[in-house]
Design a protein around this nucleic acid. Sequence first.
RNA 1: CUAACCAUGGACAC
Length: 268
Amino acid sequence: RLVFPFALRSAASLHSPACAAGIHSSTLKSGLDLDSFVRTSLADAYGKLGHHDLALKVFEETPQWHLASNILLWNVAIAISCRSDLLANAQRLFDEMPERNPASWNSMIDGLMKVGLLESAVELFERMPDKNVVSWTTMLAGFSRNGHNEKALSMFDRMLEAGMRPNNFTVSAALASCAKMGALNAGLRIHDYAKRSGFREDGAIGTSLVDMYSKCGKVELAKQVFVRMSVRDVETWTAMIMGWAVHGCWREALQCFEDMKCSCVRPD
RNA sequence: CUAACCAUGGACAC
């Protein structure tokens, strides 16, 4: 019961459908396939491996008594339906499920945002009872993906007003909105907020800052963030190389590419 | 005490 969820998660991150299928059959043999954790992990693993059909089959073959108490399995089915463009199915599951937790709402909102049904997403968001940081970030990222970057940034302000604390996901999504608009002042404001609030300029936030400054025409500021970063991944290097390149600094761009190869990060 | 679901960053060249 404790081992199967771990094993299934590993199968998913190894991108091994064969492993997942093997573990699936072990769960059947041991009679644990109807345990909540095991079954949710199984459906989720199939989903993460891209076998949406198998994941939904697991859901559909689940007895009613189990479904009545396993919200997370519904959530997995909703998220997977959204990813396979089965939005109507997701909507039906969302309406029919016995009760909803924040992840149920968030998955549905994200699904609507990803197919561009912004009004429906907004409506659901406003109706949602206990919005968490994921809910706000989903809205922000959704607006940004659909090109409504001002609205995305207004979500950032609204969430602060609502007393909700942004996390790394929120900050990097907000910076990406500034980058897309070339909005330097907004970008500086978010950067300042991040510094004041103790966010590290690493990982996604660091890369977003590099990208934001270079898209706002401030490649020198991008460089300053870049050199301060302690860990740089492919995305970070790419953002910096792109920054130099679009500013016509071809020497720096090429030098940066060389430095990247020396730093044990493989170009993709 | 410990396990499962949801959101974020690079990818220019209409």
